[in-house]
Structure formats: structure tokens, C-alpha cells
Design a protein around this nucleic acid. Structure first.
Length: 260
DNA sequence: ATAGGCGCCTGTAAGC
DNA sequence: TGCTTACAGGCGCCTA
């Protein structure tokens, strides 16, 4: 569930709280994550200082002294907090100034993983309509599954792909290669607006999945969602449809009147 | 080569 | 009301 805006919100909090701190210890809490965490790595980083916290797509990266990095991925239910351990705590990292808890009920998160090949950062200037056009025209897959493909563009998941496609007036099931350059101009503009606005508002906190930042604060972008999780459009008031054939493994909401 | 599907996991919601 | 089932979802891996 956490996508680029939520992960960026977490990054900013971590930067404030961790940068400059020295790691005194870190450990995974069995049964930890579904994917194995490399134990040798965790031993090596004790004593290192956190220089800064960066983000790449949906990955958080603690940049440490000595040139080592520690990556974190929240999966879909992961949450970073400075509170206290609970039955879902999978990872604990202590510094000389604070303790970080990684809670993850579904255990889809990971720590210390290698980053896969990722596409461009959607909010960077080098992600241009032409580049998006070039990526989409190579594939017969649906435009929505391509937007959620982290190798095409990094950080977009179901919520923001759904919203961006609505804003651009493009149906999620359309083949990527069917989009014109003009479509890509609109789509890229929509992606940048939706993501940057969501970052500004601290991400989206859905009723059920309840994203909270590390200080326990919910996001505010859910009030701006036009179609995700809704039966009628917020802006257009049209009845929405859900594709029964899942795209990239999930059902897809769209407005049959506004999206062509 | 690539696109689609499955499995991982568990809390919540819907259904009987 | 209490139980069962479906669903949500990122990502790695598998297969046609």
C-alpha cells in the first residue's frame, strides 16, 4: 500500500530523527519478514553513523558512514515508528538518540535487500513525456500494469496509477502502445501532479489500511482521491466501474464517461 | 522474451 | 450471532 508519497513522507521523518545518529544495534524479530534479511549485513552496520536517508521508488535507504547502505521496503502493511514494540514488530534499530521499530503485520516488507533495476523517478525532470511514450510503445501490456511496473517508472502502485489515469482521461485497460505522445503528455502531467500533491499532503490514509507516518500522523490526500475506493467520482459524480479482469493482479476502478 | 499468474501473509469486511 | 470465505497488495518467481 505505501507508494511513493507515503514512502517519501516516511523518509522525511526518518531524515529528521535518524540523520547524524550512530547505530548501536539492530536486529530482526522472528519470524521477521517473508524474505530473509541478511544477518551479516546487520552485524556490520553497528557503530555506523546515519549520514542521510534517501528514497528510490518505494525503497528507503539509510546511507551510512563507511559507504554502506541499509535498504528498507514497507511492502504493503509495513510501518516505521518510534513508539514501542508490538506483536507485529519485525525489525528494531537503535541509535544513540532514538529507536526505530518496523511493524509489519503481513510480513511483506524487507530489510537489507538489494534494489532491483528501477525505472526513473516520476518526479524528476528527466522523466519526460517522450521517455514515457518510449517505454509504453514497447509493450502490449495495459497502460496501468506498465505504470505499476517498477522497471518502467519507480514508486507508483494501484492508488496513484488509478488516480493519474483518471486525471488523464485514459482507461486503465488500454494497451500501453495505443497511447499517443499527446496522451503521454497528459498522463505524465497527471502523474506529477497527483504524486507531488500527495507528497505535500503526507500521503493517503485509507480507512482500512491506515497509513501513519513514523510520528503516528495520518496523511490527508485521501480526501483528494477522485475515484480510488469510491463508487461515484468525487469530481465528476459519475458512477464508476471496476474491471473484473484484474490488471497486474488487481481490480481496477475507472470512470466509463471520463476515461476513454 | 515477455506478459500473466501464483504464492507469500494476515487483518478486515462481506457473506451465509 | 458466529463462522467461513474473499479480498487487499508488492514483489519475486514460474510458465506458456
Amino acid at each position: 500500500m505505501p507508494e511513493l508519497p507515503e514512502v517519501e513522507t516516511v523518509r522525511r521523518a526518518l531524515e529528521k530523527r535518524l540523520a547524524g545518529g550512530t547505530i548501536s544495534s539492530c536486529r530482526v524479530v522472528p519470524p521477521a519478514f517473508n524474505a530473509k534479511t541478511p544477518a551479516p549485513l546487520l552485524k556490520k552496520i553497528a557503530g555506523a553513523t546515519v549520514r542521510s536517508v534517501s528514497r528510490r521508488g518505494k525503497y528507503l535507504i539509510l546511507e551510512l558512514s563507511g559507504g554502506r547502505d541499509l535498504s528498507l521496503h514497507l511492502g504493503m502493511s509495513g510501518r516505521i515508528a518510534f513508539d514501542s514494540p508490538n506483536p507485529h514488530t519485525r525489525f528494531i534499530l537503535k541509535t544513540d538518540r532514538t529507536t526505530l521499530y518496523f511493524h509489519d503485520p503481513r510480513r511483506f516488507g524487507r530489510v537489507g535487500c538489494r534494489l532491483p533495476e528501477l525505472g526513473p523517478e516520476p518526479l524528476n525532470r528527466d522523466f519526460t513525456p517522450k521517455r514515457l511514450f518510449g517505454a509504453l510503445k514497447k509493450s502490449r501490456a495495459s497502460v496501468k500494469s506498465l505504470l505499476m511496473d517498477q522497471g518502467v517508472v519507480a514508486g507508483i502502485g494501484n492508488i496513484y496509477a488509478t488516480e493519474a489515469l483518471f486525471s488523464a482521461g485514459i482507461r486503465p485497460g488500454r494497451a500501453g502502445k495505443s497511447l499517443s505522445l499527446a496522451d503521454c503528455v497528459r498522463l505524465l502531467g497527471a502523474i506529477k501532479i497527483v504524486l507531488s500533491q500527495a507528497v505535500k499532503l503526507g500521503g493517503s490514509t485509507l480507512d482500512d489500511e491506515g497509513f501513519l507516518d513514523p510520528f503516528g500522523r495520518p496523511g490527508k490526500f485521501q480526501h483528494s482521491l477522485n475515484i480510488y475506493g469510491r463508487k461515484t467520482g468525487r469530481a465528476c459524480a459519475h458512477p464508476l466501474k471496476t474491471t473484473r479482469k484484474p490488471l497486474a493482479g488487481r481490480t481496477s476502478r475507472y470512470c466509463p464517461q471520463c476515461q476513454k
